[in-house]
Amino acid sequence: MATGAAGIGAWTKKLAEKTPTPGGGAAAAVCGAIGAAAGAMAAIYTTRKKDEETGVAEKARALSESLKQTSQKCMEIADEDEEAYAALQASWKDSSMTAEQKAKVEATALDVPVRLLKLCHAEALKVHEFIPSCNPNIVSDAKVAIHLMAGAGRAAYQTVLVNNPPDAVKAELQPLLQDLKSFEEALL
């Protein structure tokens, strides 16, 4: 069953079972989806009359829409993670696969959490920049969004590491992790 079609209770119950999928990568993606959804809510609540008059409401609506799309994309990434790990696990046992085929499976397993980290970083940055304009009555939800997306990004990085990334990939992702840390520290 697709992650997005499963109820959160049923999905977390499955995550807690002794099965290889869903696993940590999918959990990171679901966390990112929840964070993006919280940010979308905070943004759409920043469309009051005074927000319309200052022009903030237009930015808030655009951010809300972007975060809704990100939330959906994170749910898709959760499914991609499950598929990639299942394929990786199968490649360990399939002696008929060529080295090239195994390398492709391994590259996909690495690409999924890399994309999740980059997505969480990009959207957390947007929320971070929006905080000063956010409706003060709901700014805590925007902050929750940042914390959840930062956590999802760091969790995705753990999945990156288990896939033995090249040093260039780690070097590319380190600044994103630092940014996520700084976004959170600014809130605390």
Score class of each variant (00 low, 15 high):
130 F>A: 01
107 A>E: 15
179 D>M: 06
3 T>P: 00
169 V>Q: 09
56 V>S: 07
67 L>M: 03
107 A>H: 03
56 V>M: 08
24 G>I: 08
119 L>R: 07
82 E>K: 11
154 R>P: 02
68 K>C: 10
155 A>D: 02
136 P>G: 00
104 K>G: 11
106 E>S: 14
58 E>G: 03
69 Q>C: 06
65 E>N: 07
72 Q>G: 08
118 K>S: 04
168 A>S: 13
95 S>T: 11
68 K>I: 02
101 Q>H: 05
97 M>F: 07
20 P>R: 12
171 A>M: 11
23 G>L: 13
96 S>E: 14
38 A>M: 15
119 L>Y: 01
166 P>L: 04
173 L>Q: 07
92 W>L: 15
170 K>T: 15
29 A>D: 03
156 A>T: 10
117 L>R: 12
170 K>Q: 09
185 E>A: 14
70 T>H: 08
186 A>C: 01
22 P>G: 07
126 K>Q: 14
16 A>G: 14
62 A>N: 09
42 A>K: 09
100 E>S: 13
174 Q>H: 04
144 V>F: 03
155 A>K: 05
141 D>V: 04
93 K>N: 08
164 N>C: 02
61 R>V: 11
123 E>N: 15
27 A>S: 14
57 A>I: 04
137 N>M: 08
6 A>M: 15
32 G>Y: 00
95 S>Y: 07
173 L>E: 08
168 A>N: 11
119 L>W: 00
144 V>R: 06
145 A>Q: 05
57 A>E: 12
73 K>T: 07
140 S>K: 01
18 K>W: 04
71 S>D: 05
27 A>R: 05
2 A>G: 00
150 A>Y: 07
162 V>K: 14
77 I>P: 01
57 A>V: 02
146 I>T: 00
139 V>W: 02
163 N>C: 04
180 L>C: 09
46 T>G: 04
40 A>V: 05
73 K>N: 06
124 A>K: 04
36 A>R: 12
39 G>D: 06
56 V>F: 05
5 A>Q: 15
95 S>L: 09
146 I>P: 11
120 C>V: 07
120 C>D: 13
92 W>Q: 12
56 V>N: 10
76 E>G: 12
27 A>Y: 04
